[in-house]
Simulated scan of single mutants.
Amino acid sequence: MEQKLCVCVLGLGEMGKIHAESLRRLGGVELALASKRSKSLQELGVRLYVPEQLRFSSYEEAIASPLVHAVVVATAPSEHTQQIIAASRAGKHIFCEKPLGLSVESAQEALSCLERVQAEREESERKIFMIGFMRRFDPAYVRGKELVESGVLGQPTVLKCTSGDAEYPAKYQRDVGYNSLLLDLAVHDIDLARWLLAAEVHRVHVVCRSLVYPQLAELGDADNAIVTFEMDNGTVASAHFCRAFGYGYNVTSELVCQRGTVFLGELRRAGDAVRVANTAGALSERIAPVFAERFELAFQREMEVFAQAIRAGVLPTGAPGALDGLQATRVAEALVRSWQTGLPQLVL
């Protein structure tokens, strides 16, 4: 009988709990949990039937444990780099929630460690690294990518994105030391632009405002941002990032092509349908609700792909890896420079 793959979730905040529940549903996977918060660790451990020996009160203990084969890094963004480095040196497979790092320097440090450790191993002993850009696994976005690659709508020309929450998360309504709107939220749409337009971001421009939560301006953050991305193949993307929609979670995209427009993200959950407008008319679907429900299938699918990649020994084509995380951080850092200067910035 094949040995079960033991995957430990580091951090049991909202994303950690989502990933833990997704892993619990997978066959051939044994779930482990690590948290500094004993109450959360105990409650989730009991609810998901995690044995005591697989509940860790420190991340270091979990990473060092010979019982653990892989980790899911779902801790605070400021902790990602060091945990990636520690897990890589400990010989673990790694899934990391976005962002890879809060600066190009920290993201590059993580990537360099991954590459160095991989180079020291025999090919059969190399480990999987995957980053959490879950929209690549959402049925609607997957269908949109398939439509683009089929050529039925011609070449894509413009991508328009909207991303945000009903209200600003409480965890960011204090001095976290960085612009969370650009360095944490925007990286999803940066990756989406790179993936759907099959190009790298060349230049960016952003306008940030603190319109609903004026105190955020003093913390170096914002609740609204309008961004343009100039891609190196001549296409263009724009995005509205918002932490104050009021009515709920909103992630929608329009991909304008030569012979039609694909409306993405307007589904409640299941199915691979999208809304396409062209000379034949339009197919309409419902607007998406809160993120945990909206992307439930995507979160489940990315954990499935992570587990399958570990068993296969290779990350499948299209699954986001460390380089994708680094590129997203490069663009996000350029957005911060644009916000600080008020001028367009090249992506370095």
Rank of each mutant, 00 (worst) to 15 (best):
Q327Y: 13
A280T: 02
R311V: 06
F306W: 04
T329M: 09
G265I: 09
A280N: 08
D324K: 00
R330W: 06
A312C: 07
L323Q: 11
A292W: 06
L283P: 00
A298F: 06
E266T: 08
G325W: 08
L326R: 01
V276G: 04
G265W: 06
G313V: 04
D324L: 01
L323W: 10
R268F: 15
P316S: 04
E266V: 11
G318H: 12
A298I: 11
D272Q: 10
L267V: 13
V276F: 02
E285I: 15
F299L: 12
I310A: 08
R311I: 04
S284H: 09
L283R: 08
R301V: 07
V290L: 03
V262R: 01
A273M: 07
R294F: 10
R311T: 07
P316Y: 02
I310H: 06
A270I: 13
G281C: 04
R311G: 01
P316E: 03
V262H: 01
L315M: 07
A309V: 11
I310R: 03
E293T: 15
V305T: 05
T279E: 15
S284P: 00
A328W: 06
R286D: 11
E304V: 13
G325L: 06
E285Q: 12
R269Y: 13
D272W: 06
V314D: 07
D324G: 00
A307S: 04
A298K: 05
R294H: 15
R301I: 10
M303R: 05
P316I: 09
G318T: 14
V276T: 04
A270W: 14
F306K: 00
A312S: 12
F306M: 02
E266Y: 13
F295K: 05
L264H: 00
A312Y: 08
Q300L: 12
F306D: 00
R286K: 07
V276Y: 00
F299V: 10
P289V: 14
P289H: 11
G313P: 01
M303C: 11
E304Q: 15
P289L: 12
R311F: 04
E266N: 10
Q327R: 13
V290R: 08
A270Q: 14
D324I: 02
A288S: 14
